[in-house]
Design a protein around this nucleic acid. Structure first.
Length: 568
RNA sequence: CGGGGCGUAGCGCAGUCCGGUAGCGCACCAGCUUUGGGAGCUGGUCGUCGUGGGUUCAAAUCCCACCGCCCCGACCA
């Protein structure tokens, strides 16, 4: 392809809309353009990279035995009512009404559609196991689209769904997808980290996320360097800290202190001259309709997913102001764990807590010298806080390290949540109807493309891996009119294309510097320069984008040499 | 939805405080020179100054409302 025949609108400056390096580079390199918030047009160069990535995903899905299908983006609302997710996902979905006034949604994911299909088409254990996948545009009305393709409102996703006769068989399907994912990301040139994850609105028993470590990732993760434990902060466990604190025995009795208007941890901490971690934070939650109190150290955040799991509940929300006043008898900010008629759950970070300060359950007052076990009745202790760097590892004696990651893939063991709501059953060998055991597996394809750029770049531009590069070779002609350079480059390009090597021939009437800089920006893996100067000596030059050294090579046989470097 | 910032040519920006009828760099078009890391000179094109309303002899500039974008938060496979 000749540069002058395609459209690659490179930009010297990054548009203001872009914040993170990959987003800026994708705009500057002419891969895509923004239409509106979270909506992007892929330009020819960006689309080529996307298609290559999709091809890798397809190959590995097929190799893993998954069957490609294509489901509609528009789905009847009733499907979502049946799974009960209309209420959970309602706000996240785009709603459309057709001329018959039927309510439709644009699919943010396809568990409902595939389970409906399976319930109709799968009836015997003889048909199992089956895994279906599709590569398709998803729609999510994100509250805040961000960072280009990282969190877009319309994006391409590879989603897959497995159906098995039983849990152990489902585990094998899960493992097959897990392994396929590892191969896919490796082939894309990505270093990924697998972490244990929360299942969120998807439901299900267990899940793993494939994370690309990046300071611009939207997810926090912790990992233990000693044993390899790694988890999303939404799920990450932590062991009880080793305490080095005065025991409760000798502590003086609680003492009430007036703390007028000091309702935040920060205010109280300053006012009492007491570190935030020596305060007990008491938060009132409504868990499946029941009001409970949750205590943790003042410098910690309650992890609502952990709370939900610990109490085996399905809905956790913070109590409103009226409920807090009713339960504690005080305004927000003065709650404490004593004298409450509701169950009090304590985070394990408070084990052995002695000589703490906490709200007095009375307006404008706190208590000092609190010993939790002595002064409050605790219903149960659980790990209820968001983990963070430095916390003890839940699996070994190591310490957790915190970092950020971009979620590019997520695999879930779903179980029978959807097959139950859709009556998706099969007959086993004994002729008994049993629910299909499901798994679901997603790869954010467009997000993965940006993650590649995020991970493969330098200060001059992108450094595409061969596997997903829009073209494998950038062929630069300097001064095409001189010494037959233009003709020689044209012949070399044709020669490479005949061998199946995709080449971008920069035939523009631009100065060398412009071409070199654009080549660095575009980041095609191999840069080949044809110039009159080189040709006079019968030479061209070859330089990998990732390297520094420029190799001179004879024009004779150059195509062979380049093809070999492209892995052909 | 709350807090903050921004909106002036394709991109990056100045001008706004203090009202006087729009500018700079890059890009783009033409010509000449130049030609291995974002060339030089000359000439030229491109603007409902986000939108609507108001104040004023006069509004990019002041006032009101709205819209869009970005960041932080809440939220979110």
């Amino acid at each position: 392809m000749r540069w002058s025949d395609t459209l690659i609108p490179t930009l010297r400056d990054a548009p203001q809309e872009a914040e993170i390096p990959s987003h800026k580079l994708m705009l500057r390199a002419g891969l895509m353009r923004r239409l509106a918030g979270g909506l992007y047009t892929f330009l020819p160069l960006g689309l080529r990279a996307l298609r290559k990535l999709e091809a890798i995903v397809r190959e590995e899905m097929d190799r893993a035995g998954a069957l490609e299908v294509l489901m509609p983006a528009a789905q009847p609302r009733e499907l979502w009512d049946r799974s009960g997710r209309y209420a959970v996902m309602g706000e996240l979905m785009y709603h459309v009404t057709d001329r018959q006034k039927r309510e439709m949604v644009l699919g943010p994911t396809h568990e409902e559609v595939i389970t409906d299909l399976a319930s109709r088409e799968i009836s015997s254990y003889r048909q199992l196991p089956k895994t279906f996948y599709q590569i398709q545009t998803k729609f999510r009305d994100e509250i805040r689209p961000r960072f280009g393709l990282m969190r877009a409102r319309e994006f391409i996703m590879k989603d897959a769904y497995s159906f098995d006769t039983a849990w152990d068989a489902a585990d094998r399907s899960y493992q097959a997808m897990y392994d396929a994912y590892a191969r896919i990301f490796a082939r894309c040139g990505l270093r990924t980290r697998v972490v244990e994850a929360d299942t969120g609105a998807m439901g299900g028993k267990w899940s793993h996320e494939f994370m690309v470590p990046s300071e611009f990732g939207e997810d926090g993760i912790v990992e233990c360097e000693a044993c390899g434990y790694a988890a999303n902060l939404e799920r990450a466990e932590r062991a009880a800290p080793a305490f080095d604190r005065p025991g409760g025995g000798g502590a003086p009795p609680p003492e009430e202190v007036a703390t007028p208007g000091r309702s935040t941890i920060e205010d109280v901490s300053q006012f009492l001259g007491c570190a935030p971690e020596r305060l007990i934070k008491t938060i009132i939650y409504v868990v499946d309709g029941k009001t409970v109190a949750v205590c943790c150290a003042g410098d910690r955040e309650v992890n609502e997913s952990k709370l939900r799991r610990a109490l085996e509940a399905s809905v956790v929300e913070m109590a409103d102001e009226a409920a807090i006043r009713r339960v504690t008898g005080a305004r927000v900010g003065f709650a404490g764990p004593w004298g409450l008629s509701i169950p009090v759950y304590a985070d394990l970070g408070l084990d052995g807590a002695a000589d703490y300060a906490a709200g007095a359950n009375r307006d404008d007052a706190h208590l000092r010298h609190v010993v939790l076990d002595r002064d409050a009745r605790i219903a149960a202790r659980h790990d209820l806080c968001v983990a963070r760097g430095g916390d003890p590892c839940p699996r070994c004696s190591g310490a957790l390290r915190e970092r950020r990651g971009i979620e590019v893939g997520h695999v879930f063991k779903l179980g029978t949540k959807y097959s139950d709501s859709f009556g998706a059953t099969f007959l086993d060998e004994a002729g008994a109807a049993r629910p299909l055991v499901m798994g679901c597996y997603g790869i954010g394809v467009t997000r993965t493309l940006q993650a590649v750029v995020e991970q493969c770049r330098d200060d001059k531009g992108i450094i595409w891996p061969l596997s997903v590069a829009p073209y494998r070779v950038a062929l630069l002609v300097l001064n095409p009119g001189d010494g037959g350079a233009g003709e020689a480059a044209g012949r070399l390009a044709a020669d490479l294309e005949a061998r199946g090597i995709d080449v971008l021939l920069d035939d523009r009437d631009e100065r060398a510097g412009v071409k070199f800089n654009d080549a660095d920006l575009l980041g095609l893996p191999l840069r080949v320069v044809v110039s009159a100067r080189g040709l006079a000596a019968g030479k061209i030059e070859i330089k990998p984008r990732a390297g520094k050294e420029v190799a001179q090579a004879p024009l004779e046989g150059a195509a062979d040499r380049i093809a070999a470097m492209c892995g052909e």
